[in-house]
């Protein structure tokens, strides 16, 4: 009977797919509009900005296009990447607890960026930090693939991801431990918290090519992920190439998450929460969850970023801290639910 009622709930929660995508896109656009109009959302801030617009049009437009617009664009890129990667990983591993951080991409990207910073490469070029992040993510995935070898099973991948995360985390700590100046340590720790503040279009241009390439790789996995619903052998019997699928997912996630982390720091749990919330709305189809989660992740990050600015006018809360504060309890609830259902 309980099953019956839950089933009814599931059925009624599914939405027409185009409508859902349009709704998520609209939600994202509204958040982007909010982020663009005012730094802090209040009548005074808004009127202050309008005054500036009439008195010093050039400065006002510069604030819009060079300060707020890149922040929004970057937020959409990072959020979309995290949502899409989370949905792809969950579909691939057939595990609602999967997350981009799970396969070690986030931690390895952070390590790469920290190394670039540690050796003072940042003074050579401002692109050194993001470039280090991408290289780190790819290196982390290389180690992952070595550890996994020819065995594409889910458990091996998860354990290898845990190992990569732990090792990258330890090396990051080591770099911080040995850092020559406390300011350097502080700067790295601040960056690791994850934020979209003080980013420019240079960050956008640096992250965009890699992330788009990653998105394209992930976008083509939908049908194979659907087929995996039946089981690995049944999917293979229908011609799904699991090895190729694994490479696509790992490189798609590595490229997009590596580039995203390198410009925003670690923003956790978006890739966990968004696919989980949207899954009933797309009728649990992994292929449909991909675009929905990309749009949903972008919208969530944009709203969270608006919220962060609104809530903390003085010392700005870091976006990554806020997502972790909300995401970690969510993860625990999800874990309890999954365990209860498993029994």
């Amino acid at each position: 009977m309980i099953d019956e009622t839950r089933m009814e709930a599931n059925r009624s929660r599914e939405m027409p797919f185009p409508l859902l995508l349009a709704g998520l896109a609209m939600a994202g656009l509204i958040a982007a509009g909010l982020g663009l109009v005012a730094d802090r959302i209040s009548a005074t801030a808004l009127s202050g900005f309008l005054t500036l617009l009439s008195e010093d049009r050039e400065t006002a437009l510069a604030i819009l296009t060079e300060v707020r617009l890149p922040r929004i664009v970057l937020g959409a890129i990072v959020g979309g990447t995290l949502g899409l990667s989370g949905a792809a990983l969950q579909g691939w591993l057939r595990n609602p607890l999967a997350e981009p951080g799970l396969i070690g991409a986030s931690a390895a990207a952070a390590l790469g960026a920290v190394i670039a910073f540690y050796f003072g490469l940042g003074s050579l070029s401002q692109f050194a930090l993001p470039a280090g992040g991408v290289i780190g993510a790819m290196a982390g995935l290389g180690v992952l693939l070595l550890l996994v070898g020819r065995d594409p099973s889910v458990l091996t991948v998860i354990l290898a991801g845990v190992a990569v995360t732990a090792f990258a985390g330890a090396l990051t700590q080591l770099a911080l431990n040995l850092a020559p100046s406390p300011y350097a340590t502080l700067e790295v720790i601040t960056w690791l918290m994850g934020s979209l503040a003080n980013r420019s279009f240079e960050h956008v241009w640096l992250a965009l090519p890699m992330t788009v390439l990653g998105w394209l790789l992930l976008a083509g996995t939908g049908r194979a992920l659907d087929a995996l619903t039946v089981g690995e052998d049944a999917a293979r019997s229908m011609g799904v190439n699991l090895i190729r699928l694994r490479w696509r997912i790992v490189f798609g996630v590595g490229l997009s998450v590596g580039a995203a982390v390198s410009v925003s720091g670690i923003i956790g749990f978006v890739g966990l929460v968004i696919p989980h919330l949207l899954r009933p709305l797309v009728g649990y189809m992994p292929s449909r969850l991909l675009p929905a989660s990309a749009l949903g992740g972008a919208a969530l990050i944009l709203y969270a970023d608006v919220l962060v600015r609104y809530l903390s006018p003085g010392q700005e809360l870091k976006l990554g801290v806020v997502t972790a504060l909300i995401g970690a309890p969510f993860f625990l609830l999800l874990l309890i639910e999954v365990r209860r259902r498993g029994q």
Binding site: N10, R94, R223, D226, A227, L228, T229, V230, G231, A235, M238, G239, V240, R279, G283, Y284, M285, P286
Partner: peptide, 18 residues
């Protein structure tokens, strides 16, 4: 071993994958 609670008709339609 069904991974997700998808609808029966959609589950059957997965057989058209090849």
């Amino acid at each position: 071993a069904e991974a997700w609670p998808i609808r029966v008709d959609r589950f059957v339609a997965l057989g058209r994958h090849p």
